[in-house]
Design a protein around this nucleic acid. Structure first.
Lengths: 176, 176, 176, 176
DNA sequence: AATGAATGAGAGTTCATTCAT
DNA sequence: GATGAATGAACTCTCATTCAT
């Protein structure tokens, strides 16, 4: 519900109704509405960071690593669509909220990891040296992760077709 | 304020305080909080669509058109940053809200316009034929417009450097 | 906890936490929160009335009786400080609560007992006849029992020094 | 209502009902329930301190000053009975509450003022030198101010008869 | 004797909106 | 064009209490 309607548009009563209990009863399980958000986000971010780290640590060459990160991103959009949407929608709002520092921290970790891969590729001569690594990371990140706003499982695309199309565009560019 | 804090996180009192009047007095100028949003968004979308249409109508060849649309997008992010951020943040929420159908309509118009340009490029043999036009449009759109979430005027980048870097990546791809 | 934080400011959970069990488990030992209060207060009031009665029944002359009642009051403040504080804080609130009629009854018993001593002293010519007995009782009672709000065992005073100072003031007055 | 039922036992809805408006409307006049308490208490304490200070500054001799302070206290109990009761009931609870430091401060000011008068009387030889001034102050204060818990205007006593009886007891003591 | 999940009522507070002045 | 008082609904959260286990 947080992903669909937004955190602050979702009421505790909405959640309790969906759970089939009274709103007060939720407080037996969570200390606050924010605590529910924390549990959702930290679980998601922990898993994502672990998978990203594993890809890079087991990596062979920068291009395979970057392709792996991108493919894993599309898979995550498929497997944890609502968590991704939640993160996309609320991350900027949470940046300033006390108790949610871990969100910005995890984002910074991710950014550093991706940029290292891009720089390694440039150093190895496999990625164009004239591209700004930080900028390139952001263009890729946004192009990939924004997919969550329109992707629907069971629709025209699968994580694999998305990754294939995106990588084709990214690798060789749009020009014939 | 809608762009910065979000529409529903911004109270009518916040706006009135910033305007130096009392909240009730705002209703002399706007029929509702939503009417303020409508005015902001429709002005922004009208201007944007007009500029996009002009680019394509005055267009020479598909590549120049696409580059023009992208460059104009970065300029708009610079010139109307808050309106763009507002649109990015609230568009999906507004899709279902009565009275805001015009937002989705304008978005569809834009999408059709961009996709026509891409398809024209493929037909002319200048864009890769194996790319899905709709998918390519979304990857580009998201990569470009998400810039608004981190771009700050006066920072390391200008609309021109952003466009130059993005077009370099888009034209030739990341591979050396 | 009732004495320190007040009855209605103390939650059943507070009490259960302090007891190292869960709040629901308290209801195995007490039928309600009020039942805990009853147990505390009735035990305290029973003991106090018994000691007061004993003093007066074993009494020799009115002055010794009054001094004895006052000294016993200071001792009770020392020995059962929290119970006294609880009684002082909650008595007026409880006056109207169903099931707590015993509190007002015990207070009335006490009042009658003290006033009898004062009137006996006036009849015997040992206490000033021009003093209103009921009023004098209340002035004494409040001066003595309010001590509980600031008295701390182990501090500058003992029940004995308090009684000595108070009796000096009461016996001869403030004027030199 | 705060005086009668206690601050935390009084609900915002109780107050609004008594005022003939809805509970939310109260927040147009007060920022919070605590703000109502602040307004009541600070007004009361400011006035009381001003009157006490005036009595001592205009004073001739210590006995007249002390009598004046006591008489003024009984008058205040008569004139501002509910404010006095509120202060008596809530002062100790408020001692620890953020934003209510002014209550403890005013109390300390009062205490210092009364004790100075008592010490001046002892120095002048008009008050018994063997009495502990701080202790004597507290016995008097509690005897006098606790009156509020049972005094009812229009009843058997007036502020003047109360003061007369109390001063008779205080001046010469209970012994004949 | 204790757990832990749930209840249901009610708490303080927020806020878009209305409207007589 | 603005005020300021009020509305009414909804919000998050608290808490004494119940009860099957």
């Amino acid at each position: 519900m947080f992903a669909t309607k937004g955190f602050s548009q979702t009421t505790v009563r909405d959640i309790a109704d969906a759970a089939g209990i009274l709103s007060g009863s939720l407080y037996h399980h969570f200390r606050s509405k924010e605590a529910m958000l924390t549990e959702l986000l930290s679980g998601f971010l922990d898993g994502l960071n672990a998978r990203f780290t594993e890809i890079v640590e087991a990596g062979v060459d920068p291009q395979a690593d970057l392709d792996g990160l991108i493919t894993e991103s599309f898979r995550t959009i498929h497997n944890e669509r609502l968590a991704v949407a939640l993160y996309q929608n609320e991350a900027s709002f949470l940046a300033t909220v006390e108790g949610f520092e871990f969100v910005a921290e995890r984002s910074r970790d991710n950014e550093a990891l991706w940029i290292r891969v891009i720089e390694a590729g440039q150093a190895a001569g496999v990625f164009q040296a004239s591209l700004d690594p930080a900028l390139t990371y952001r263009f890729i990140r946004d192009g990939v992760w924004s997919t969550v706003s329109w992707y629907r499982p069971g629709g025209r695309h699968t994580p694999e077709t998305l990754a294939e199309q995106y990588l084709k565009l990214l690798h060789a560019g749009i020009l014939a």
